[in-house]
Design a protein around this nucleic acid. Sequence first.
DNA 1: ATATTTTTGTGCTGTACAACATAAGAAGTG
DNA 2: CACTTCTTATGTTGTACAGCACAAAAATAT
Lengths: 234, 234
Amino acid sequence: MVEHKGIIKDNVMIQISDLWNLLSSKEKKYLYDKMEVFNYKRGETIYAEGQTPHKMYCLLHGKVKIFKEGIGGRCQIIRVIKPVQYFAYRAYFAAENFVTTAAAFEDAQICSIPMKDIESISRGNNGLAMFFVKMLAVDLGISDKRTVSLTQNHIRGRLAESLLFLKENYGLEEDDSTLSIYLSREDLASLANMTTANAIRTLSVFSAEKLIAIDGRKIKLIDEWQLHKIARIG
Amino acid sequence: MVEHKGIIKDNVMIQISDLWNLLSSKEKKYLYDKMEVFNYKRGETIYAEGQTPHKMYCLLHGKVKIFKEGIGGRCQIIRVIKPVQYFAYRAYFAAENFVTTAAAFEDAQICSIPMKDIESISRGNNGLAMFFVKMLAVDLGISDKRTVSLTQNHIRGRLAESLLFLKENYGLEEDDSTLSIYLSREDLASLANMTTANAIRTLSVFSAEKLIAIDGRKIKLIDEWQLHKIARIG
DNA sequence: ATATTTTTGTGCTGTACAACATAAGAAGTG
DNA sequence: CACTTCTTATGTTGTACAGCACAAAAATAT
């Protein structure tokens, strides 16, 4: 992780304007000096399970995964972050240590803000408090839905769902069919709750069925409608 | 569901004092008339998946399950509510319809408050907003942990974990070993993410191994330490 | 460039668990 | 009361998926 000293912070303020605009000029001034911007390398850990939370983050550029290590070191990706999204605030608000780990999928630029200050400002700024209420409420709904689909859907359904999710979340390349994120088979497996071997195998099957086309880590969605069907009923 | 007209609302205010005390006298006065108390029968639905949320609830007496219907009608219990706990506020804050269904495990007394009012008060009352931030943050952490344990733990581990969870949540009878909640095998299966037949089978195995003793729906925990071990490593 | 590690791909084997069947006991209903 | 309906219980069968083994290809380091 490298601190990005030279950056013009004012650009960051524009990026995080959804949060920034909720603050009074006094609050803005106060936070301005406390904020930092860091660059993380591909694969680098941002925070780890068990650590005590001190700052929240906002992803400015890149892609980040939030995951949890389970039985026998098997990782489960809990959610993924895209620019401009906030993360790492949950544990502090819950007065807990982190229960997840965050790492960069690819090189990422991340802005950090001390949670102590975020919390104290939230206690006097309703807009900010409600901002977090909204985000937490949305994430909890996603998490609840995910619990059921990960446990009840079959392998084909889970993979199809994950591919569609990646499209929804990170979008497509200019050709309008290739996923914009190039995940390793292992990460894809962690997302769809299966072993790496099964992710590879099932991708091959999807490819043979002309639902997708694979070229290394490039995945092109061909028959999205069919993928949706598989995601729903298996 | 039967409205409980005769109840002395002031008793309810004492029960929900953690929320109530956050309000100004003006807010209290305003909400007092909007609140209602209902009695629900065992098995009765409180709200259902897909409905638009209008009020939040507080469980005053009884036990409630929050679940989601999955593939082929298979239900997954997402979380359980005990007195005095609040629920059904997430969907409104996220501006979504309910993604879960709530039903009474057993006869329950529930207080309802219009979410419209809760939201508008929250927008002007920081204590209340932060109250929801805290609850949502805690629930999201639980949900994330649950996702992993439900997907990665084996059947014995999941059942052991569920039994211990029921103890943590609802406590024990006076004998200090019998679970205070008497679940059907089907509900226990929905909680531990398995089929009813497997819940029955695995309970029998646990009983044969002298980890628990079963007498109908009464479950007595005998070797809690061993159950913890099974819950962790399988 | 060469060596070494990581990632991808495929086949085989074993097993955990779902699905189904069936029966007996418990509980609710006319 | 007999009646249906629901719950508990256990055995049998089938299969989805993990685990392991082993190449080949690609990425990274030396």
